Amino acid sequence: MELLVQLLLGAIGGNVGGALFKNLSLGMLGNSLAGILGGGIGGHLLGALLGAAAPAGMAGTAAGGGVGGLVLMLVVALIRKALAK
């Protein structure tokens, strides 16, 4: 269940990042895919890095997934932009 929440919130985070940084947007599908991947990674990293100090339960899962999705979408967009030059 936690992984599903991370992936869903990752997709939302990726699309929020695309809306906030329109010049870096990958399009709805690209933002969602990068966000899903980032959500899964971000949720696991948050738990691994913070251990017992990580926010407990769904709140921590949601935070890790959303932030991870946004961050990975931005990283992919910046790499894509740099390669296009």
Rank of each mutant, 00 (worst) to 15 (best):
S32N: 06
L78D: 07
N15E: 02
G64M: 07
G40F: 04
N23A: 14
A48K: 14
G42R: 05
R80F: 05
L20I: 13
I36K: 02
L29A: 15
P55M: 12
G57N: 13
G17K: 04
A52E: 14
L72A: 04
G14L: 03
L70R: 02
G65A: 05
V16I: 08
E2I: 12
G27I: 07
A11L: 14
N23M: 06
L70H: 00
G40H: 03
A82M: 10
A19H: 04
G57F: 05
G47L: 07
A84H: 09
V75Q: 09
K81A: 15
A11K: 02
A63H: 00
R80Y: 06
L29G: 09
I12V: 14
G38T: 03
M28Y: 07
L70A: 10
A62P: 09
L9D: 00
V75G: 07
G18E: 08
L29I: 15
K22L: 10
L45W: 13
V16M: 12
G64Y: 02
G64S: 12
G14R: 12
I41S: 04
Q6A: 15
I41T: 08
L8W: 04
L3N: 09
A52Q: 13
G68H: 08
A62F: 00
V67R: 01
A56D: 06
G51R: 06
L3P: 00
A56E: 10
L26E: 03
N15Q: 08
A19S: 11
G13I: 06
L78V: 09
A53H: 03
A63M: 12
L26T: 02
G40Q: 01
M73A: 15
L45M: 11
L50C: 10
G27W: 07
V71A: 13
G69W: 03
G35E: 03
G38I: 04
E2L: 13
G60T: 08
V67L: 15
H44N: 12
A54C: 08
G47T: 04
I36S: 02
N31K: 07
A59D: 03
A84P: 00
M73L: 11
L50G: 03
G14P: 06
M1K: 14
G57K: 11
G43L: 01
G39P: 04
G66R: 04
G10I: 05
L78P: 00
M58D: 06
L83T: 12
I79P: 00
N23Q: 13
L78G: 01
L49W: 14
L49Q: 09
S32Q: 07
K85A: 10
L24G: 07
A48N: 13
L72M: 13
L49Y: 12
I41G: 01
G27S: 04
L70N: 02
L72Y: 04
G10D: 00
L78Q: 15
A77R: 07
K85R: 12
G27Y: 06
G42K: 05
K81I: 06
G17D: 00
G69D: 04
G47I: 02
L33G: 01
L20P: 00
L72C: 10
G40D: 00
L20Y: 07
F21P: 03
G42F: 01
G30F: 00
G69S: 08
A62C: 09
G65Y: 00
L20T: 06
A63F: 15
N15F: 05
A48Y: 09
L4A: 15
L7H: 04
L4K: 09
V67S: 11
L45F: 12
L24Q: 10
L46E: 05
A84S: 14
M58I: 15
